[in-house]
Structures are given as C-alpha cells and as structure tokens.
Design a binder for these strands. Sequence first.
DNA 1: TAGCTTATTTATCATTTGATAAAAGAATTG
DNA 2: CAATTCTTTTATCAAATGATAAATAAGCTA
Lengths: 187, 187
Amino acid sequence: MNEFIEFCNKMSQLDEATITELERILKLKRASKNEYLAYSNNLSKELFFIRKGIVKFCFNGDGKEFIMRFFEENILFSDIESYTQRKFSKYNIIAIENTEYFSMSFFEFEQLCLKHHKLETFFRKFMVRANLNMMARISEILEEDAKKRYSNFIVKNPKLLERISLGDLANYLGITQVSLSRIRATK
Amino acid sequence: MNEFIEFCNKMSQLDEATITELERILKLKRASKNEYLAYSNNLSKELFFIRKGIVKFCFNGDGKEFIMRFFEENILFSDIESYTQRKFSKYNIIAIENTEYFSMSFFEFEQLCLKHHKLETFFRKFMVRANLNMMARISEILEEDAKKRYSNFIVKNPKLLERISLGDLANYLGITQVSLSRIRATK
DNA sequence: TAGCTTATTTATCATTTGATAAAAGAATTG
DNA sequence: CAATTCTTTTATCAAATGATAAATAAGCTA
C-alpha cells in the first residue's frame, strides 16, 4: 500500500477492490528543481500527490508571482478550478526541490469515487479539510498585518521555512520580497 | 421538494428514500435582523441553508469585526471547523436582514451521507465548489489592492451590495470603514 | 578558485492604509 | 417632527508597504 493509498485509507477505510483500482490509475512521476509539473493556460486534469519534495502552486499577475500554497510530502492537490470548470488554468505548479509524485487523471479518480462510496467519503472529507486550511488563511490575512503573518508562519511551519526561499515566502505572504526583508530586520 | 433538497438534487440526483430522510432532519427557523444564528465560543453543530435573507459569517479580533462571507438565499454553509474539530467556534453568524433558514444537525446530515452515496457525492461536489470560492478570494487578496477589490466586488455582486452596509463591506474587504469611504470618494 | 548568477539586505521616497476625531447624512423612535 | 442613534464622509497625522536602485551575500559553474 503506497503513501497515497494510505493517505486515503486513513480518512476513510477502503476495501481491497477500491485499492486495486486506485493503484491502477496512479502514475509515479518526477520533476527536478524548478521544473513545471503543470503550466497555466492549459486545461489541468491531473490530481497530484507529493511523495518526496516540495512544489509551489502559484500564478502570475502584472509581472509578479503569487503563491497560493506550498505542497510538501504526503499532500494531495490539484487545480480544481481548471478541471471542474473546464477552463484554462491560471496556475503554475513548480517544483521547489527535486520532487517525486503520484499523478492520476482527475476524471478517472472521480469515476472511482462514484463507483466506491468509501472513496467518495474520503474525497469529501479531504475537501472539508482543505476548506479549513483556506478559511484559516483568509481569516489570518484579514486579521493580521504582514509582520504577524510572517511570525505566525515561522512558528507554524519551521521545517517548511528551511526548504523555501524568502522570495517565495514573501510571494506567499502577499508582500514584496523587499518588504519581508525589512520585517525580518526589525526583530 | 423544498429549496434545499432542490439545491442538493441539482448537483447529485437523489432518490426518493434519501429525500424523505433528508426532509426529516430539516428544521425551518427564523432570525430577525441583527439576531445571532450562532455565537462564537460555542460548539457549532448545525448546517444552515438560507431560504430568505442574508447573514454574515464573521469573527472578532482586537475589537474589530472581520467578515469571512455573506450568505444569501439558497446557500448552504456551516462552521465546519467547530464541528469537524470539535472545538469552540471563533465565528458569529448574524442576520443582516430578517432571515428564514433551514437548520439541520451536521452529524445527522453526515450520517445520511454515509448511508446514501448520492448524497455523499453532493456533499463532495459542494465542498469542491466552496473551495473554488475560497481560492478566488485568496488569490484576489494576494493580487489586488483594496481599491481593486472594492471595484471587483461591486461588479460581481451588484445585488448583494444593495443589501449590506458599507461598514460590513469594509469588514469583508479587510479594510476599515473609513478607508473604504476614502476609496469610494476617489472615483 | 574566479567569475557569474541569484538571493537577500539596505536605503530612499511615494503611496496606501490605519487611527482618531469630527462633521454630515440617514434611519429610527417616541 | 424632534431627538437620538447609527452610518458614512471628510480631514489630519502616523505607520506600513510598494517601487526602485544599489550594495552585500550566497550559491553555482566552468
């Protein structure tokens, strides 16, 4: 049972048949540092599960890069917007480290969900959890200024901090890299 | 078939048995303007579906109010965080207009999801859609300044705009009411 | 290691937003 | 309708952040 299956299984116990079918749609892939797992302006139809490494999920606007999230080991994600709305993606997915990941067709995964109730339950629970993360992010952006968001980040993600650049962190926090540097200086 | 059932049915067609059981757990409730549908610092275990009216889903920090979202007619929502993590809510749910809504036990709804695959599918799809909203919100906050967020809001939500106060709108946009007034002045 | 490239810091000035107070306008109530 | 309360605007000053440029620092490659 690979990492992804275990990830699903933890939230909703799957039976053998489901696991077998799930394994069948998984493909193991690799991306080197700075390589793109997916490009904006394309239809994105993949689900990703990081096995080793980190990626950033980001978009560009007015020459600047904005990072929606970092995804590290044992996280499932995808460009839901592009897939569910069948529209060109605004996001890039870029490896920050050499990365090994499972990839699967979103459509095939969804078909398995419709076929196997337990897998559908997993997916629902997973989406609920994803929602909590987003809510927390939004409420933090509303409530706290950049200095506080930075200090929260280093407390909550000490390990991640060591693996990403300050430029990427700034793009995640929603401030310029120069501004982050200034914040770091005033400790 | 009431508004809520129709809402579910549109995303995932339910069979009769499911509908009957779903109807059984629904309670129709009312809240007058400014009345609380739910208080922070409580365990929140309800799912809400607005039939008529508007509410704000908000929290307080440092004496200020921050609005996560407005919920109007035909929207399903709940304090997922409090329910799924069994912890005291940070959110208030407050009626902005006289509001009529369906309320149901989150636990009972979840049980129905585990029992009826189609309902589980609805719930999953619903959560996916909720995620898209949140993503859009985050990316907008990262990318745009307050002036642009305001102008986006009035374009995207012209009807909602007429039903909420500028103070509430400011709390939603993440700026002070005074700052919003200033932005409105410089057209 | 030297040279090149990228990442980070520092500095300066402009712009945006916040905090506060006060005035003007609207809505509510007796 | 007058008084009261709540909402919105205007004004002033302070603080935070952005834009830009330049200086260091760190990392990479030949």
